[in-house]
């Protein structure tokens, strides 16, 4: 049945761990936007979600860092962080290893991906899932792009990963949603934490929803670092989804810089059936 919905959302741990410290009205609007995305996924009768994130040294470390990895486990567990800190209960997250295997094999036709049968989700997956599948009743297939430590995947290759994921998803009979998470300016866990470059974020979102391939591939690592901080490297997750959905113009459903959450919180829809 192929791709039924695609979009992006934020995953900053502050959204849940420091949730109540933001302006209550803005927080309400953010949660409503997450809920709108949850409904869009449900309304599309989604049978599995492929979630492209960038984990933060929880599973993949400097001793063995895959540029891209896809999970093929029976199920996952998360969050790996202290649930009391993240304010998300640790739980088991179902998957569909048969579908994951088909997707991995199809992606391998054009992009070299690593795969993993064990994977503990950190906030990069746990925060979006907390809002998008609160009952943990939709199988999740995780995809990781190394955005933590250079050298990183060139953006052109990230684009190809997105194309390969779309081909794999379209080849599957299941109804599949594709979510990317992360990528606006932020300086997480550093003395600059809380700094936000709203202008940079607006341009990125505009490029994403309009699928401006040339512009999206022109973000250099040096400029991203200077303008958007180390968290900006996570643009790879969003660019991957833009590549997968190049055939449709997207929409911004939420955009708000929230310093106490350390980033501009965004929710976009990049493809609807």
């Amino acid at each position: 049945m192929s791709l039924v919905y695609a979009g992006t959302c934020c995953h900053a741990p502050g959204i849940t761990s420091r949730g109540e410290q933001a302006d209550p009205e803005i927080r309400k609007q953010l949660y409503e936007a997450f809920d709108r995305q949850r409904q869009a996924i449900e309304n599309a009768h989604t049978e599995a979600i492929v979630m492209v994130s960038s984990e933060h040294f929880a599973n993949f470390f400097m001793d063995n860092m895959p540029t891209y990895a896809i999970g093929m486990a029976d199920e996952y567990e998360g969050p790996i962080e202290d649930p009391d800190w993240l304010k998300i209960d640790r739980t088991r997250i179902p998957s569909n290893p048969d579908l994951a295997l088909r997707i991995i094999k199809q992606v391998l036709e054009s992009v070299d991906v690593s795969y993993a049968q064990e994977w503990k989700f950190d906030h990069g997956m746990a925060v979006p899932l907390h809002f998008l599948t609160p009952d943990y009743d939709i199988p999740i297939i995780p995809v990781n792009i190394n955005c933590q430590n250079p050298p990183f995947s060139p953006l052109g290759r990230t684009w190809e990963l997105g194309k390969a994921l779309r081909r794999a998803i379209d080849a599957a009979p299941e109804k599949i949603a594709l979510i990317g998470t992360g990528g606006t300016s932020h300086w997480p866990c550093t003395p600059d934490s809380g700094k936000i470059n709203e202008k940079w974020d607006r341009k990125l979102l505009d490029d994403l929803i309009n699928k401006r391939k040339q512009d999206l591939l022109a973000y250099s690592d040096e400029e991203t670092y200077q303008q958007a901080g180390p968290g900006g490297y996570e643009i790879r997750t969003s660019i991957c989804i833009a590549a997968a959905t190049e055939d449709q113009t997207g929409e911004i459903w939420f955009f708000e810089p929230i310093p106490i959450y350390s980033t501009t919180c965004c929710i976009t829809t990049l493809y609807q059936k």
């Binding site: 550093t190 600059d192 180390p230």
Partner: peptide, 12 residues
């Protein structure tokens, strides 16, 4: 490491 390029002056 990764932050050697940051000014380290903190958020403004």
């Amino acid at each position: 490491g990764l932050y050697a390029m940051i000014d380290g002056n903190g958020a403004t």
